[in-house]
Nucleic acid binder design. Structure first.
Lengths: 198, 198
DNA sequence: TTGTAATTAGGACAATCGTCCTAATCCGTC
DNA sequence: GACGGATTAGGACGATTGTCCTAATTACAA
């Protein structure tokens, strides 16, 4: 699990710092301080700061892909798997309160910077969106699975934003429970009368 | 409505630029370019960039207070007033797709910067939170009015975040409708059997 | 018209940013 | 031990940042 190469160290440190301080607010000096490396050495491994960002995004994509695969193995039903998604809000509670959602905050920042990598960063959202979409399809909601996926994604994003602003961990717990209840109610509707989301 | 003083011009330009580009990514040169003023002249009106931020936050607070007051006058029922809140997502659709929610994105950025004014910026959230809380109380949900207010705030924040990421205006419309349906269902529960939020 | 305060323009400032260059060092191979 | 490529250290660079200082200009009162 421990990274061996200097390049991996740089990416790992950048990943954390971009999350905690934001991309623009993190300087080469900051990363160098963590990795214990000379500033000039960066440019042997990366041609620019943007290239480090790309590497960070790719690492995050790979990490989340592994996580989603793991949820597919562990969760027997699509319901269980969606619960796993909701549960990361609880699991990462402390970090979310301090720094928000790593995917959402990066997407928001790059959007304001009008950064060239915003499309790449948003692939992280798409990754969860299509995964959730597939689970809702398996749940029998093939016609509106994507709407349900977007709905759940949005709610988790909103919870993260407000939990950070108000430094409120209890709020995360309450909303996570509501989200689980909502998902369950959506599954039930497969056998019951089909209604709109509410 | 037109601002007279140079100070007001600066604050207005900073307000827009902080929204569109973010606080840190907006330089004095950027503001000066809009206001058509020399860079050195800033420090006659403000002692620092942080002081401009404080002024912007106060202007936003005043603006939103006026808006909320207006909704109280226009809306006959608390239900109507909450609808007005949800409707800003539709009204500001284009801006939200481009730049997100001005309150949420500022709060998120200042949180990452660990900026001294983050508490002041979060007062914007509190303003809507207490206002929504009052409306839900008038709706007969005095016991969990604050939970409902936070829930609605979170959902609107999440919608804004994803609408920006996916540049999707249709998503805003769908979710706004869902939120309206949800609010209505919450009001109905006052007369019907009291259940948990779902 | 004159004098005084308010306002502005423009440049200097130290610090920091991302970037780049070159010399030194490391390390495995012959 | 010597060679050669991979890796690193350290500083120089131009640009930009927020901040500050001072002289010039404006606007208003006497």
């Amino acid at each position: 699990m421990r990274e061996k190469t200097t390049r991996d160290h740089i990416v790992k440190a950048a990943d954390q710092l971009f999350y905690q301080q934001g991309f623009e607010h993190t300087s080469f000096a900051d990363i160098a301080g963590v990795v214990q490396i000379s500033r000039g050495n960066f440019y042997y491994h990366f041609k620019s700061k943007d290239e480090i960002l790309d590497a960070v995004i790719n690492v995050r994509l790979a990490d989340r892909q592994v996580m989603l695969k793991q949820w597919e193995v562990e969760g027997e039903t699509p319901l269980d798997r969606i619960y796993s998604f909701i549960h990361i809000l609880i699991k990462n509670q402390e970090k979310i309160i301090k720094f928000g959602c790593p995917i959402g905050t990066l997407s928001t920042e790059l959007s304001k910077l009008n950064h060239a990598s915003q499309n790449d960063a948003n692939k992280l959202f798409t990754l969860f969106r299509t995964w959730l979409c597939r689970q809702f399809t398996l749940l029998g909601r093939e016609t509106d699975a994507d709407d349900l996926a977007m709905h759940l994604l949005a709610r988790s994003q909103g919870v993260a934003t407000l939990a950070t602003a108000f430094r409120d961990g209890e709020f995360i717990k309450i909303e996570a429970q509501l989200m689980c209840d909502w998902v369950k109610s959506q599954a039930v509707e497969t056998t019951a009368a089909r209604r709109s989301i509410h």
